[in-house]
Simulated scan of single mutants.
Amino acid sequence: MSENNNRALPKTTEEAKAAESVAVQERPNGPLHTEFGSTTIADTVVQKLAGIATREVPGVYAMGNAARRALNSLAERIPGSQTNVSGGVTIEKGERQTAIDVNVVVEYGAAIAEVAEEIRRSVITAVEHGTSLEVLEVNVNVSDVHLPEDDEETTERTDRLA
C-alpha cells in the first residue's frame, strides 16, 4: 500500500491551469527575450539612435551644452575623426524599457514646443523601431537659441585669424 501513496495523483483542472499560468509567467517574452535566447543592446546604441533622430528634426540647430559643443567642434577638426552623434543624449535603460533626455539648441524663430514634440515623436519611433525597447519618456532640455548673428560673429573671428 505504501507504493500507491508515493505515486503522484493526477492534477485537477484547476491545478493544471494554475501550473500553466506560472509556466507562462516564467517564460521570457518580448522580441528581445525569446525561448531561443536573449538580445542585449548597449546604451550607446540607444544614445546614437536618439541623437540621429533628434538631429533630423527641423529647428534643431545643435545638441549638447556649450562645453559639449566646443569639444565636438575641436574633435571635428582632427582629420579622420567622426561626428559624435550621441552628444547631448543621456539615457536610463533596463532590459525592456528606456528613458531618454536630450539637450538641444533650437534655431531662432522655431516654435520650441513644436520642435520638442517632434523630437519626442522622432526619438520614440527610431528607438522603438530600432531596438524594440519601450520608450517611457523623452525629456527635451532646450539649453540655448541659435541666433543668425552668431554665425556672422564666428565668420568674422575666423577671417581675422586667417
Score class of each variant (00 low, 15 high):
residue 47 Q to P: 05
residue 76 E to T: 13
residue 83 T to D: 06
residue 96 R to C: 09
residue 121 R to P: 05
residue 82 Q to T: 14
residue 70 A to G: 10
residue 67 A to R: 02
residue 98 T to V: 15
residue 98 T to P: 03
residue 88 G to D: 03
residue 118 E to L: 02
residue 127 V to K: 00
residue 46 V to C: 07
residue 99 A to G: 12
residue 63 M to N: 09
residue 93 K to C: 09
residue 53 A to V: 01
residue 123 V to E: 00
residue 62 A to L: 13
residue 64 G to V: 03
residue 50 A to H: 05
residue 88 G to M: 06
residue 104 V to F: 01
residue 81 S to V: 03
residue 76 E to D: 15
residue 111 A to K: 15
residue 69 R to A: 04
residue 77 R to T: 11
residue 54 T to I: 09
residue 86 S to N: 12
residue 81 S to K: 04
residue 104 V to G: 00
residue 42 A to C: 11
residue 70 A to C: 00
residue 103 N to K: 09
residue 90 T to E: 14
residue 51 G to F: 00
residue 43 D to S: 15
residue 92 E to R: 15
residue 103 N to T: 12
residue 62 A to E: 08
residue 43 D to R: 12
residue 105 V to K: 08
residue 101 D to L: 14
residue 121 R to V: 11
residue 121 R to K: 15
residue 59 G to C: 11
residue 59 G to F: 10
residue 80 G to E: 04
residue 73 S to A: 13
residue 70 A to S: 09
residue 61 Y to S: 13
residue 114 E to I: 11
residue 121 R to I: 07
residue 60 V to K: 02
residue 54 T to A: 11
residue 87 G to V: 03
residue 121 R to T: 15
residue 120 R to P: 08
residue 80 G to P: 09
residue 106 V to G: 10
residue 80 G to S: 12
residue 41 I to Y: 14
residue 50 A to K: 01
residue 58 P to L: 12
residue 84 N to S: 10
residue 55 R to L: 08
residue 119 I to M: 12
residue 120 R to E: 02
residue 41 I to G: 14
residue 58 P to W: 09
residue 73 S to R: 11
residue 71 L to T: 13
residue 126 A to K: 08
residue 65 N to F: 02
residue 67 A to Y: 00
residue 104 V to R: 00
residue 118 E to H: 12
residue 116 A to P: 04
residue 95 E to T: 14
residue 63 M to R: 10
residue 83 T to S: 06
residue 57 V to M: 05
residue 67 A to M: 00
residue 103 N to G: 02
residue 59 G to A: 13
residue 126 A to R: 05
residue 85 V to L: 04
residue 54 T to V: 15
residue 112 I to N: 05
residue 106 V to D: 11
residue 94 G to A: 15
residue 62 A to S: 10
residue 83 T to F: 06
residue 87 G to A: 06
residue 111 A to C: 13
residue 100 I to A: 10
residue 75 A to E: 03
residue 114 E to H: 11
residue 124 I to Y: 04
residue 110 A to V: 05
residue 124 I to D: 05
residue 76 E to L: 10
residue 91 I to G: 03
residue 118 E to P: 01
residue 118 E to V: 01
residue 63 M to A: 10
residue 108 Y to T: 07
residue 73 S to C: 02
residue 110 A to F: 05
residue 45 V to L: 09
residue 82 Q to K: 14
residue 108 Y to S: 12
residue 91 I to V: 15
residue 99 A to W: 07
residue 111 A to D: 14
residue 100 I to K: 11
residue 64 G to N: 01
residue 84 N to K: 11
residue 66 A to D: 02
residue 89 V to H: 05
residue 85 V to M: 07
residue 127 V to W: 00
residue 52 I to H: 01
residue 114 E to T: 15
residue 52 I to T: 09
residue 77 R to M: 10
